[in-house]
């Protein structure tokens, strides 16, 4: 689904379904669904796939300087595929980045916005 160097920025409140979406993305890299959990605790869950898959969760980091210090941009630029949860915490997002926002509607429905993909280029999807 994602080629080398791809990054997805995810937005959505607690319980919106971000982890569920990431389980789906990770499964495209051969990572079992049960092996993609919450990354809130470790902040970066690194999966040794090819290309490497980085699951970053900024939930517990509130200050911009702490986000810089944990090396988020190094992961993003390292040639792997990166999914960043709680992108709300970032004040700047690279241009042309893929942004996905999940809104909670009710217990069984969600509204999803996707931005930054050229819809005519299906290789992107």
């Amino acid at each position: 689904m994602q080629s080398k160097g791809g990054t997805v920025f995810l937005y959505g409140d607690l319980g919106a379904g971000k982890t569920t979406l990431i389980k789906g993305i990770a499964s495209a890299f051969g990572i079992a669904e049960r092996d993609t959990g919450s990354a809130s605790f470790v902040i970066v869950a690194e999966h040794e796939t090819f290309p490497p898959f980085y699951h970053i969760d900024l939930y517990r980091i509130e200050r911009e300087e702490d986000i810089e210090a944990m090396g988020i941009w190094e992961y993003i630029d390292s040639g792997g595929v990166t999914v960043v949860e709680w992108a709300e915490r970032l004040s700047e997002i690279p241009e042309n980045a893929i942004k996905i926002k999940i809104n909670y509607i009710d217990e069984n429905s969600r509204e999803i916005f996707i931005e930054g993909i050229d819809e005519t280029d299906w290789n992107n999807m």
Binding site: Y11, G12, D13, E88, K99, K101, N103, Y104, F113, E115
Partner: peptide
Amino acid sequence: SALGQKPDPPQPPLDKGGIEGGAF
């Protein structure tokens, strides 16, 4: 940054704005 340090306005139960619209 989104609210320009204004006091918290009364909030709907869940935000339905655009991608970066006051989501958190």
